[in-house]
Design a protein around this nucleic acid. Structure first.
Lengths: 148, 148
DNA sequence: CTACTATAGTTGGTATTACCAATTAGTATT
DNA sequence: AATACTAATTGGTAATACCAACTATAGTAG
């Protein structure tokens, strides 16, 4: 079941074990996100988009950058989400080409509900650790994320 | 950029921070996997399928279970991978309905190469930790994974 | 041993995701 | 004022993934 391997060096075994654990954890986490999204008819990408728009309004091109997707993909995503009433396109008064995207009240509520459910679904896993362990794990993950 | 929030309880703050770190780590990891897959014209799902088939031959239905997908989706995935020569369908002599899937030599090689590249792409992140920290992180992640 | 039921996969239909190339419209540059 | 650049959309294609319906094989009941 190891996603990766082919390391025989003594020191690299630890690294390989970590990578396997990271990949497996990621798949479990993604599965949780996908499932919760699906319960609200949201793809993982749509869920991410809502999460991004929770804090800030964003231009189409900014969304493409954040999500690592082509602009044309964003057009489609925003189209469908807008048709569902989750968000709105707004004109940028300064730049006539630019389109800004903002969550509607409904979109904001859905994003909040999703966040709560995600926390709820992951807590069985995270709660296997005590507070000190949680803290240590968080710190280690954040250290890795910084260097990226 | 917090994917989730809405926790004000004192003890839950640590948990919330952990969940955020987990989700962010997962997206970074998935982005790496997606990119490496794309370089070999493999979707994340196909990459996972190859990874599963590295160790074992599997029936169509077993693949559906492992991947959490509908059987009909597997038919399509296997069709395309077979057409590319990465794997083969084989009849099960015991059960005439069952179809077993096995990697070809080419598929095995691609899976191995992918695994190496994944390790290479994640190592900049994992190498920000020393060996003891890697070990601690791995242990904590595995503890969580067990309880799932 | 035939008839029902269950299981394993495939097929056909649809929606979504995602890309690329081409286009439209607005902004900047020279 | 003409040219180049940028922002977003449109159209076309392929892959992913679902569901429902179907085929073929296997197992069970009468």
């Amino acid at each position: 079941m190891p996603f990766t391997e082919s390391a025989t060096q003594p020191a690299q075994l630890d690294q390989q074990a970590l990578i396997d654990a990271l990949v497996r954890t990621s798949f479990v986490t993604m599965a949780v996100l996908t499932k919760i999204g699906a319960e609200h008819d949201l793809s993982l990408t749509q869920l991410r988009m809502l999460a991004i728009l929770r804090d800030r309004r964003a231009k189409m091109s900014a969304l493409a950058d954040y999500l690592g997707l082509d602009k044309s993909t964003i057009s489609g995503l925003v189209d469908r989400a807008e048709k569902r009433g989750l968000l709105q396109r707004e004109a940028n008064p300064v730049d006539g080409r630019s389109v800004e995207v903002v969550l509607t009240r409904e979109g904001t509520e859905l994003a909040a509900r999703g966040a709560t459910e995600i926390a709820g679904s992951l807590s069985p896993m995270t709660n296997t650790l005590n507070r000190a362990e949680m803290h240590r794990l968080t710190t280690l993950l954040e250290r890795m994320l910084e260097h990226h």
